[in-house]
Design a protein around this nucleic acid. Sequence first.
DNA 1: GCCGTTTTCGGCCCGACTGTTTTCAGTCG
Length: 593
Amino acid sequence: MELPLVVGLREDERMATKNEIIGILEEIGVILEIKGENPFKTRAYINAARTLEGLEEDLQTLVEEERLDKVKGIGKAIAEKISRLVTEGELPYYTDLKASIPHGLLNLLDIPGMGPKKIKAVYKNLNIHSIEELKLACEKGKLQTLDGFGKKTEEKILKGIENREAYMARHLWWDAHEIAEPLVTALRELPEVEKAEIAGSLRRKKETVGDLDFLASSLSPAPIMEWFTSRPEVQEVTAKGETKASVRLTGGLQADLRVVPPEQYAFALHHFTGSKEHNVALRSRSLQRGYSLSEWGLKAEKTEEIPKDILTEKALFDFLKLPFIPPELREGREELERLEGKKTPELISNTDLKGVFHNHTKASDGKSSLKEMAHAAAQIGWEYLGISDHSKASFQANGLNEKELINQIQEIKDYNASADREIHLFAGIECDILSDGSLDLSDEVLAECDYVIAAVHARSGQKGPDETSRLIAAMENPLVTMIAHPTGRLLLQREPYELDHRKIIDAAAANGVVIEINSHPRRLDMDWRWWRYAREKGVRASINPDAHHTDHFAYTLAGVNIARKGWLQPEEVINTMNLKAVREFLRKRKSDG
DNA sequence: GCCGTTTTCGGCCCGACTGTTTTCAGTCG
């Protein structure tokens, strides 16, 4: 599941249009290829799409000033088509072309092994229009009768269709990370391996990942490929060559390994870490300096100066007069411009945390007792732990009523006063926001807590205010310290509530309310894409594991990843404060409110 | 369909891998 992109900025709207046009050009190229057009003509559309992707100048401006056909890779004919799409939003040529082939034929591209040529072959010879028909033809053994198809191709396509769900599913960062870490560690221990790293979206700490990318540098790749493809967790080897292999692991996760010589390693690592958008931006910066940059290295284009050995990513950024850009920030969201002439930002790390606030015990739906939680938190080295069980409206989670909360607060006071205390406990509550925006427990009782986390757990009824208004109403209660998982999303499971993030962040800023980064690997909410705006507004974060068991404290790592992707620095996260400072912060928050 | 000329035609790209070939076409990232 991909989250909706940032909306509301004029720039982003234009980007969407540009991306749509890129998609249309690519589609035209594929359809022309299926129809058997001149291969170089079909290429021209694909090339034009690539050109548009890397376009630095504003597309709108180029169209208005009629300079589009001056861009290398875009000629008169394609420029006219793009202009039409920009100004009128539609293109009869494309609409007609699309209508000229059966609906569903392009879906065949989703099947591994099926490209334009093979689609054309099955369409012309077997009149296949859809994935279902393709599957049927494979099962009847009809595919292997075609020129250029054999038994293996047919088997591969059939398997591809059958495994489609598993192959295409994305995976939580946490799950992928747990599989990838031991693999890369073992990879590094091989005698032939000089360096090895995880690349791709996993390295960028994206909330979900599609597959695993491993990269190693070595002068003798053969034993490394052998090792990789014979791991016990490998279910199937889908490709194996001298320097490149693909496997499918148990659980359906796809993993690729590439082995490159040491002098190419830095370039390959950067390239395969991505993102695509970041790479486009860096390549274009490199070109401006007279070098073409690729996974293979730097090539002098317009200059005589040969770059010296570049053996690390840092050296590569150095050469391009940029600070080292941490992988988490390489999302093509203007990171190059924002870091121009600056140092690498000092992003928060997991060891900066001095405690966490959103945690449950057996009193509501947690699996560990208050003392077990306190002990485990002390073992990590934290200075404090906040206890925040559910409130009574979360009936399914055995939420606390007023009396039970008062009892728990007393239990926490007793613990803090006891001789065998191992850590300071803060008394909190994860208080439900009701459908009218009010809180589930009385202000009188909430005022007894050290802090209050307000959270939505059930969507509001049709009559009540929308989700945005409910959250804002809750934030306007001066007793509320922070809001939990604002969108309620469950990655790969449940879509986020429809929220106006801007209004939420503005309200948090106006009321001095902290926004949580819920670190549960399935939540990671508020999303990293919004922290840029929140930082600008001076809103602070609290990174919380939402622990229901002592084991769940480890989730803070996933939350820290999201904070890093949001460019957050330690001082912007309240639970990097030491006990004295955070106690003062909570006290002040209560008295100001 | 684009580009760049030795300027109105002729060439066009990116390397690795697989499978169907018997020297290479198609797919993929």
